[in-house]
Design a protein around this nucleic acid. Structure first.
Lengths: 392, 392
DNA sequence: TGCCACATGTGTAACGATACACAAATCATC
DNA sequence: GATGATTTGTGTATCGTTACACATGTGGCA
């Protein structure tokens, strides 16, 4: 830059202003600088040096609770990020996806990230990456979960939405089932009934706190054997050996609250959670859902109502049902979540929420460009009732 | 960092190594550093300072020829970027999406980008963003186009693939049609026949060069009126007033070569390009395709064969055909491109190419981690023949 | 005329880290 | 025990920019 200044016959500061604050210098000076820069092949201010001095990078960081490629593979993440991208574009900010792979070095990737703020896409309460983000001291917004003091938070009321959906899809059912996202970071897929005697707790573990919620039985070395708590060594994929599914022990806030919502709805009919069969998918894919749904739909207690946590998973159920010769909603009522493009053609009852809007809101919040609506409005959702829950 | 060094009782360099090259210091020293850092709340090396001194940023930049949100909205871009993301994750590199919006300031966004290399997703030959990338002097790989000296290039042989497809979909047709991507950055949608008398040029304008290809009639002030060349003031959306479509004037390399390929195939049957009706879509959306396809499928010379440049567009044709009571392939043969998830269920003949693999190859090339296959293998494509081209 | 506001140009002093070269201690090898 | 290789720690110089404070010229306005 010094060379350019000399060649243009101006001071270094004039060159700096010519790039950073074009209005600060005269047209004449700016032209001289541009000309000299062109002639000398000066590529413009070094971004690193600029960021070192100014303290800003012009990047918004995005951290996924999944492998980096999910940003482009998972339809839900993609819609969310589209909203984030829109806001970034509006403000001329680049969008930096931090390369998370599920390995311990993820923490380093976050620490090294050259960004001005973070947006976090749903992860587990005990994900160390969240602590690393907190440690940077940069503004950060978490979507879905976990909640933490000091980090902003954006999410729909998943429990209420799941309860509303449960009322719809479980109505008149005798053998309800749930197709769930993973319960924790191990992402083990399995099929099991709900834990018996599980009380319906109001909101335990959902309040913001400085760490993961302490769950009975995992809090200390004196392991209290609480019914339904997954023992560390019992993570198997065998349906028979699987312990019961306890919503309250899921470390993914979204999953936890949706399970609770379904449980709420079933309890309202006088049913017990232990009657509900839950298939946990390790990924949000129709393929895996099809396999697990086949398990739910066969055997002596085959499900006649399934609430799936995404439309993707629900489509897997539809495929499984078709293969088994079951009709929807005749033999089986079914619900999805998110109102994806495929939901309407499939007649799928679903929860509509605009992940794109939520992504945009997260980005605005992170960048400090809040609108009044961001502050005052709850995240919107509504249930779209279609044929898949019209029990004859 | 100096403070941490003092608190830990070591030199600054030891602290630096403890973070940047943990193997360079003893376990003991590293522990002391980590402890002191923790105690002082030191968040780790400042990324800007690090990049200033080391010359590396740990970011791979991605530039789209479209608005930033296309990264998450367009299924083809999404698959491509999934491949890029995979390679980034493998190498611990962050993925930075440069906020391109179609405005002149895009050039500044590129210049300011703190990245080690660029990957460019298909854009126009005259996109100034490409020059800005060249000016940075950083390694860059262009996917699709344009070709430029000094920039690496990855693409399938679109002309050959389109020719193969044309042979399949135009076989036995009397009124062929094409559903095309935009011809140039104006992205004007329109419907028109091919220009008459258009000679089949081998590869004009496709060789790498330092600038956009010079096309007859646009090269200089003395505007030579060449048949079929779009005059600057004739960009209208009215089908009647539209000048003919000339493949050779499209500034998008991919579009240009696919149009040429279709023209090649039709010429092989003895047909003239002026018999081919072309609908240009401004975006890659089934919605718009449906509207334009309706135009192709009605009137005195309704098309009985349509080659679409993407499966998305082809699905729009299917919808339009269904609404008009036309059957595929009975009344109309149809082809898509890319073999998206929806293609097989729809029985759509298509060109399969792995955009994910191509994205990965671009990223490897940009980052200088080439595999032997990257060097020696052409980008693969093959035609998948399904029912949509089985003319009875 | 005198005064202030504004536009424009300049010099200095960091910003926070790492490349590099070197020194000392430790270890393996014949 | 001498030699060279390896491990580990240290100073110095420097990367390229912008914040800040200040100087100058110009025009408006009472």
């Amino acid at each position: 830059m010094a060379e350019v200044a000399r060649a243009a016959g101006v001071s270094m500061m004039t060159v700096s202003y010519a790039y950073g604050q074009p209005g600060r210098v005269s047209d004449e000076a700016r032209a001289k600088v541009r000309e000299a820069a062109e002639r000398l092949g000066y590529p413009g201010p070094h971004p690193g040096a600029r960021s070192l001095r100014s303290g800003r990078t012009g990047n918004l960081g995005v951290v996924l609770g999944e492998h980096l490629t999910y940003a482009f593979d998972d339809p839900q993440a993609t819609r969310f990020l589209s909203g984030v991208a829109q806001v970034c574009a509006d403000h001329g900010m680049a969008l930096t996806l931090v390369p998370v792979t599920g390995s311990p070095s993820d923490v380093d990737r976050v620490t090294e990230a050259a960004v001005d703020a973070f947006v976090v896409w749903t992860t587990a309460d005990d994900d160390p990456v969240v602590d690393a983000i907190t440690a940077t001291g940069l503004p950060a917004v978490v979507h879905g979960g976990p909640r933490r003091d000091g980090l902003s938070f954006v999410a729909a009321d998943d429990r209420a939405a799941a309860a509303a959906m449960g009322r719809e899809v479980f109505a008149g059912a005798r053998h309800p089932g749930v197709l769930s996202f993973p319960l924790d970071r191990a992402r083990v897929s399995r099929v099991a009934f709900g834990v018996p005697g599980s009380r319906v707790l109001p909101e335990a573990g959902d309040a913001p706190g400085s760490g993961p919620p302490q769950t009975a039985g995992t809090a200390s070395g004196t392991a209290v054997s609480t019914p339904g708590v997954t023992a560390p060594d019992s993570r198997t994929t065998s349906a028979d050996a699987s312990p019961g599914i306890d919503p309250d022990t899921s470390t993914f806030r979204v999953t936890r609250r949706r399970l609770r919502g379904y449980r709420d709805a079933w309890a309202e009919t006088g049913g017990d959670w232990s009657q509900v069969r839950v298939a946990v998918c390790s990924t949000n894919s129709a393929r895996e859902a099809e396999t697990l749904a086949a398990e739910l739909l066969t055997g002596p207690n085959a499900c006649d109502a399934i609430a799936a946590m995404s439309d993707e998973l629900a489509l897997g159920v539809l495929r499984a049902a078709a293969r088994l010769g079951l009709t929807v909603p005749g033999d089986l009522t079914l619900s999805g979540w998110d109102d994806s493009d495929a939901a309407a053609p499939a007649g799928l009852t679903t929860i509509a929420q605009s992940l794109r809007d939520q992504g945009a809101r997260c980005a605005r919040t992170a960048l400090g460009h809040l609108t009044p609506a961001d502050r005052d409005t709850d995240v919107a959702w509504h249930l779209i009732s279609r044929t898949s829950t019209r029990r004859p």
